[in-house]
Design a protein around this nucleic acid. Sequence first.
DNA 1: CGGTGTCATGACATCGGTGTCATAGCATTG
DNA 2: CAATGCTATGACACCGATGTCATGACACCG
Lengths: 357, 357
Amino acid sequence: MATIYDVARKAGVSPKTVSRVMNGDAPVNTETRKAVESAMGELAYVPSRAARTMRSNKTGLVGLITGAISTTPSSPESSGLPDLLIVQGILHVLTEAGITLLISDTGGDPAKVADLTRTFAQHRVEALIYVADYHRKVDLPAIARAETLILVNCFDDAGTPCVLPDDRRGQHALVARLIAAGHRRIGFLTLPEDLVAQGLRLQGYRDALAEAGLAYDPDLVAVAGLHNSGPREVTLIGDAIARMMALDEAPTVLCCGNDRMALQVYGILRSRGVAVPGDISVAGFDDYKLISETLYPPLTTAVLPYQAMGEKAAHMLLERLRANAPAEKENGPLPLISGPVVWRQSVTERNPSAQTG
Amino acid sequence: MATIYDVARKAGVSPKTVSRVMNGDAPVNTETRKAVESAMGELAYVPSRAARTMRSNKTGLVGLITGAISTTPSSPESSGLPDLLIVQGILHVLTEAGITLLISDTGGDPAKVADLTRTFAQHRVEALIYVADYHRKVDLPAIARAETLILVNCFDDAGTPCVLPDDRRGQHALVARLIAAGHRRIGFLTLPEDLVAQGLRLQGYRDALAEAGLAYDPDLVAVAGLHNSGPREVTLIGDAIARMMALDEAPTVLCCGNDRMALQVYGILRSRGVAVPGDISVAGFDDYKLISETLYPPLTTAVLPYQAMGEKAAHMLLERLRANAPAEKENGPLPLISGPVVWRQSVTERNPSAQTG
DNA sequence: CGGTGTCATGACATCGGTGTCATAGCATTG
DNA sequence: CAATGCTATGACACCGATGTCATGACACCG
């Protein structure tokens, strides 16, 4: 591979002049520039980042870790998707900014974090991003010390900067929209109770009810999600639905903890001869398009903006890099990213005047 | 950040000796070694890859590009998932091998490939991987010249090494298994005709029929998939099903082009009062667990082993790197990766003696 | 006891860029 | 015309590792 010396010799100038042509940091005579540029072209010269890094201490690299990072055991709600979508969002923004992403995966083994971090350190990454596969608290090994570090889809006790989904607001918006559509009895089949998202979404649900002056009825709320699909979850959901449908005032719509659960609810309801949305409406959460757009009828759901979270994290990172502010512990409000409600045909409009929202 | 000189000074030795301790490439006195190691520990020394790269010309970096690479327009069957799963597979293997992956995304713009490739070249990546989001032919810009390059989920005319899914074998295995279960009239709702996978899977379908001595009946095959979900696809699939069900000898099972289509088929069948699998069986393709495990009843399907394809590609890469054989055009048989059939409750066993397979 | 081999270590050059400083050439200015 | 300033360029050192070679201290052997 050609070096700056080869180019310099071919163009009949000094290496430093070639450097100046590349970086434009000092005036170069037009003819000299042309000579250098054609020499670079002929030799297919590509400057070496390694050499450049040696002096400038700027690598243009950022490290990203997905998979297990916490030292606490984790409950894998993991479909493996969210973290990948977040990574895509980060990738777009950073690529645009000329930053190259080093990506590693713990493969589920938290013990590997130390190794990966060291590898990143060897490459002198300018910052680290950790992406969790579902909204949760993490317990960071104290390795990623002084470095700029940003957490996505997770948070810790130390106040490390993070980007989180606004589960509460999302559920609130969805339920408010259901109410606007004329629904008053809103069943809620929640995620497992140990998930952070579950508590927040329940709050959002209650917020929306309170805002509309509706009473909170515990009979309409049931923990019905498990961490994985399977016959046990089908039973759990089925029982919850049966209980709710048997109420004096049965729900007119079922909010599900996520789209995956909604998919199960479709099957369960239909196998019992209950039509969606003819007999009862169904709503999800996440907007996994693979499910929400494909279900028949298509699913009304709240967007969990994974891609946007990734983009937000990338922007925060760029800002910090420019400001040269490493790992500033923020005590301001956390950046909570919320997504819109997507209205599809799985929910009936009981109140034709409520087409807004 | 501490350098090898700092460590050497602290330990009272020469930098070269520190280097020897790190690399173990020459004998070092035990006491000297201990002194050096404790100096490294105290200074939290991490060697610089950049400096190391300067002499050795080994970077331990591999570049990966996803998104549009081809200069030909593409039809986006893309749910965005496959490429991500493939990347995960690659990531696991390469991380294990101590190689760090530089990942970029064209964001759908083929024009960016040149930029990305140049960035990778600056980092002196030792190889390039391109990952497509669905099985297709690509038309590579002639940039990634001499370098070791591997294509995943796609192929080109130039004979660049690639890893592809064995669509034909997968469909063959699935249909053979259906036949073993006693099914004789097997409907096939295929993917759009312009997809490479469609032709291969249709061949697999015919292979299995021929092998069992069953006649191929064109009435049982319909192109019913579009590139995206939506009312048009629902209509297409619905019409195809109606036509097949009205045949003198209606199918007892419907094979769908992929799991997403199967999900639609579930909805369409049930909205017409047709029970799955009571009245008719359904099979998919891909084994997107999010769908196949969650559908009610769970979906019988053929695994499209994206993760395994990624792993295979990574292994091929490692082998080439070790052999130092850049971009050898292979003319041997292509590595086609096939996955198993996953048998779930969406297909009835009509022949109780056929529990094998 | 001198020659030879092994062990342990250091001096020095080098990889490919860039920062610093010097300098030659020419124009401008008082 | 001498002093000053700007343009364009090069010489040289340096970033932090490692490859090459030299060397001093022993041990072993005949």
